[in-house]
């Protein structure tokens, strides 16, 4: 039952054949595939690292740009505020100037009107006085003397500020 014969050598050969076949059919492909996957994973990881580094760089870039943009925006706002306040100031000054001018013009006009009124009044007073005086002392005084009298009277009027006119 346990006799040994040529089967012994046949089994050795059989098993060696099995090892060779199995190695070719199954083991090599599996190992090659594992190697390929390892390579691919390594590649992917390397690429991911590179991508992450690039992303970090980009992020830093954008942050810098954003900061610069913020500074610029603040500048612009500050400038705009400054200009607006300048313009407001200018507008106020202009308005003030215009008001001043208008006031001056009005004053001048008032002055002019008053002067005209005074001159007119004076003329009228002279004429009235002459008429009155002529009526009173018709024939006593000649014309020249008359004239002088009236002028004096009127001058005196001016000096004593008779007649309540706003001068």
């Amino acid at each position: 039952m346990i006799e040994l014969n040529m089967t012994f050598f046949a089994q050795i050969i059989n098993f060696v054949i099995l090892v060779v076949l199995l190695r070719a059919v199954a083991y090599k492909p599996v190992v090659n595939m594992l190697k390929a996957r390892e390579d691919r994973i390594k590649e992917s990881l390397d690429k991911a690292d590179a991508d992450a580094a690039e992303a970090d760089k980009l992020l830093a870039d954008y942050k810098k740009k954003l900061a610069a943009a913020n500074v610029k925006a603040e500048d612009i706002i500050r400038n705009a505020e400054k200009r607006a306040s300048e313009e407001r100031e200018a507008a106020r000054a202009e308005t003030k100037r215009e008001i001043e001018q208008m006031k001056k013009a009005a004053e001048a006009e008032i002055q002019r009107d008053r002067e005209r009124a005074v001159a007119q009044l004076r003329g009228e007073v002279v004429a009235l006085s002459m008429a009155a005086a002529g009526k009173i002392i018709s024939k006593n005084i000649d014309k020249a003397e008359n004239e002088q009298l009236i002028t004096e009277f009127v001058d005196k009027l001016d000096k004593d500020k008779i007649g309540d006119l706003p001068c």
Binding site: N5, M6, N14, L18, L21, L22
Partner: peptide
């Protein structure tokens, strides 16, 4: 030479199954 044929057949069957 003497060979145990059943052992050999079964060995080949086992090899075939493994493969």
């Amino acid at each position: 030479f003497s060979f145990n044929m059943e052992t050999l057949y079964m060995t080949w069957l086992a090899m075939a199954i493994v493969l």
